[in-house]
Design a protein around this nucleic acid. Structure first.
Lengths: 304, 304
DNA sequence: GCCTAGGTCCCGTAC
DNA sequence: GTACGGGGCCTAGGC
């Protein structure tokens, strides 16, 4: 039996079904007239109305109205569901600790209650995330800068891990921050923190202080033989005509807002326009920078 | 009739029910074995398995497995739902434009399909948001700083609106950034952008350039009589022993991470520990700064 | 447990 | 429409 469903059950009937479903680890949907209370990180009250309540065996709870992608109330996984009849109403409560939070749904009427045994895979195969963008950059570093040579991903700094760290053709350190979508001012701040941390590293000594000792860890790129002095730069990696300390900051993202661009310029950083995916049939995915890069409505007609 | 439900319908039956429900503007749940494809800002594929699909009359679509608060696939409101039988399967598709996105669910088996007419309120009464924190600050400015005098909320700057803007006892401008929860480095960056924008204002002239002309708009505070010189400060509003330009930056939040605190100190800004809500019975909600401010497990027992 | 950042984030609001 | 920031954000990955 994969689905059970009862229409307009009495509260006792509903209670019985709920507890059996909890026991089985079923997915539960309840539709009915209810009020909802929540207290925890915040607190809320929702007056009477018809809602769809979903209770998952992992402890997640969702309360949906007829509008919005976001549930009007919810409880994340890890909660515990409880049901009871109180004051003539069916009370469903999901509770979790740390943070201490309680969601309470009180049904005056249950229109329908269903329980479902779920089987099958949950693994989503997703493309177009920041990780895809990183792959593109590592496979074709020239998209970032001619002569760019990635050295490490998730490179640790005192400000956190840098998405891609490497050197340019002149041997200057390059800090690359990747974003899968159009970026605003926050991304510039993020890049700024990383660049400043790296600059501070170079200032205060030979990059051995802040970096967690992760030689040969999983973040490395280019595990070829040369690990020491293979730099072909003519400068001593810094003090060039560039802005700060010789450390470059590059924001790789499909596009950037005006305000973010102004901030970026203010800090002396650069934007490289790049999509997380090779843009379908559109060549290599490099978007022309500082130019009208838009409207490629590829007429992808459905197969059926 | 508020609820209709069919068990193990044929695809044609299901199609009929779906189209009637679309017509009525009903909320729809479908549980069955299906695959899911998505393409748009990203792209994904989900293999066959049992899932709960929710279709809302506002165009929202949700695909839920038995785990997680977040749907495994979805479509935001504004999409258009379509149903058809193709290649022996029931195909439900939600499409939207800008961005162009398509969600396709292909059912090999529909275990249950329900349609529901939703009535009742959707307005949530929520407490504990940043707005509550702002209210607290405006009602009791001394919580931020003795002598702090709020002048404006959502004060426009070239970097965006400042949560609360005012002056301290010495007449120095104060930029306040509010956060309802513990803050990390990003919040410091945000505050930094605002403070820098205000400082630039003061540098480049008498605060009349970047500010949109919103005198007497809705962001003002203190519409009392005294608008001019009531300051009791002994300094001339700036050039004190303080860091920058005489403009102070204050981050008001319940707590702050170490890294954020270091950044804050580096910029010469301050943290004021404050909760969005008066913390139940806990006095005025001011949290002791730089001290072990924790564990107040108030034993709030349920009423029933 | 906390911290940090990504997300098909969603969502409201102002421009 | 774009932009910007809030959110009970959720979620994954480190430490």
């Amino acid at each position: 039996m994969t689905v059970t469903s009862v229409h307009d059950p009495s509260h006792r009937e509903a209670l019985w079904e709920l507890e059996a479903a909890f026991e089985r680890g079923d997915l539960i949907t309840a539709f009915g007239r209810c009020t909802v209370s929540y207290t925890g990180r915040a607190a809320s009250e929702l007056g009477s109305g018809d809602r769809l309540v979903v209770l998952k065996p992992d402890g997640a709870a969702l309360v949906h109205t007829d509008e919005g992608r976001t549930p009007v109330n919810w409880q994340p996984p890890g909660s515990e569901h409880h049901a009871a009849v109180r004051e003539g109403r069916l009370r469903v409560r999901s509770v979790r600790s740390s943070p201490a939070e309680t969601l309470t749904v009180r049904f005056s009427d249950v229109h329908q209650l269903s329980t479902m045994t779920v089987t099958g895979g949950r693994d989503l195969d997703l493309h177009g995330s920041e990780e895809d963008l990183r792959t593109r950059v590592l496979e074709r570093p020239a998209l970032v800068d001619p002569g760019f040579e990635p050295r490490e991903t998730e490179r640790p700094t005192s400000a956190g891990p840098v998405d891609v760290f490497g050197v340019d053709g002149a041997g200057r350190p390059v800090v690359v921050e990747l974003k899968r979508r159009r970026v605003g001012p926050d991304a510039v701040g993020q890049l700024d923190r990383y660049v400043e941390a790296v600059r501070e590293e170079y200032r205060t000594g030979g990059f051995d202080d802040d970096r967690a000792d992760t030689d040969g860890d999983d973040g490395d790129v280019h595990s070829d033989g040369d690990d020491g002095e293979g730099d072909d730069g003519d400068d001593d990696a810094g003090s060039d005509d560039d802005d700060g300390d010789g450390v470059r900051g590059v924001l790789v993202a499909p596009s950037i807002t005006d305000r973010a661009a102004a901030l970026l310029a203010d800090r002396g950083f650069e934007h490289v326009a790049l999509d997380p995916r090779p843009e379908g049939t559109d060549g290599d995915g490099r978007v022309s920078d500082d130019a009208g890069a838009d409207d490629d409505r590829r007429g992808r007609n459905d197969e059926e």
